[in-house]
Each structure stands twice: as C-alpha cells, then as structure tokens.
Amino acid sequence: MKDKVFCVTSGKGGVGKSTITGNIATALAMQGYKVVAIDADIGLRNLDLVLGLENRIVYDIVHVIEGTCPPEKALVKDKKTKNLFLLPAAQTKDKSAVKPENMIAIVESLREKFDFMFIDSPAGIEDGFKTAVAAADGVLVVTNPEMASIRDADRVTGLCEAMGKPEPKLIVNRLDPVKVKRGDMLDVDDVMQILGLELIGIVPEDKSMVAYINRGQPAVLEKDSLAGKALRNIADRLLGKDVPFMKLDSENGFLSKFKKLFGGS
C-alpha cells in the first residue's frame, strides 16, 4: 500500500473536516484495518465528539510531546469499532504546543503499527495547518459546493504543492442535489472546473448528521444513511477499489422513497 498517512484539510472552517476524518477512519476500521485518527486541532478538539470518545480521554497529544506518556498510551481505543484508535488533541493548550517536527516524530513512531493514519487539520493556513500537513503522505481536501469554501480549498491546495506534497484528492461535502437542480448550489462539475483535483468522494447533505455527532455515532455505522454510504465509498476508494460515484439526483432522495411507498414510479 502506498499512502497510509492522510491529512484531512480544507482551509475554511465548518466544512466537515472532523466529521469526514472520523467517518473514513471508522469505515476503514470496520473493514479490519488498524486505523488511528489524530486530532491536530489543538485547543479546539472535536474529533473525539464525532467518534463518541469524549469521556474516555486521559492523555492527549501534548502529553506525548512533553514526554508524560508514550504515544501508544495516549491512544484511546474505540469500543464500538475494533481496530480504531484516537490520538486526541489537548483542549487547554493552543496550536504552538505542537511543532511540525513533533507531529512527524509521533506519526513515524506509530507508522509501523497501523495500516492507516488520518490527521484532522485545523481550519486556517497558519502553523496549525502546516503542522498537520507536515507528517502526511497524502492530503484530502474537503470543500462544500460554494465559492468561499472552494477558494479556500484552492489556497490550501497551492500551499500543499508548495510544501512538496503530492496533489491532494478532493472530497465535495454537503452537496444538496435538490438545490443543485434548482440552480441554488454549485454543481460538482463547477467545483472540479476550478480546483482540477482528483475527485475521491461526494458526500450528500444529511440532516441527521448533527444527530449522529450528538450521539457520538459516526454516520458510516448507520446502514441506511446516504451520507454514511458515500463515506464508506470514500474509504473503499482509498483502498484502491474502483467504486462508481452514487447517483445523487432527487430520484434517490427522501421524497422519491415516499413516492415509491405510495405506488409511484
């Protein structure tokens, strides 16, 4: 396997980096791979919430850097999903507590023991972002289908190129097929035209995502969630499988299910 350490980043905040990191990591762990998710958003940690591990954290990444405990000891084991581990961020420190060389050292010390590692990058393009990207073999850029997010993703892509990383792969998150059809939202093609990156996933907007996070249950564990299926597909594509993109026109949507129930086409 070529790349095993991925950094999930976006530039803009709130596009779904942590959610996607948590879900892809869970999806790969479900398939039996040993996966660790590293939260690099020091001071604003959220990845533990997505995975539902917030009350099990004892040590965090800053303890590891300070030498209070070895990296293995700081890892939080997920009880729901075997093979999934979380290296949480410190909530009481800020971005300056972790330097790029610290991140590289942690990743290298864990590399041999895991099949995949995902680093959840903070928003922005400052030191926190640079630290998160420094240790990664590959970069996954998350964007929403709207201009502000696309521009930030573009900026981040340029910075990754400047740092000598391979061309990032693109995940379009929170795509609403109904809005696209109405012309209120940019299409995936529009996004692709500007960014020109390899598309690795399209995740549809899912109203229940907030509920999943509140419950601490990643969407990939939900059998009938469309977003969960899209995220599982991304995990498969990372494994090198050729998975076709889901059809996201309104036929697959919520309303059409009702229509089917009532004998519609």
Partner: peptide, 8 residues
C-alpha cells in the same frame, strides 16, 4: 506548467 492557485 501548473494551475496558479488562490494566494499564489
């Protein structure tokens, strides 16, 4: 020989 991205 590349795309000039935002900020560059």
């Amino acid at each position: 020989k590349k795309t000039v991205r935002s900020g560059e």
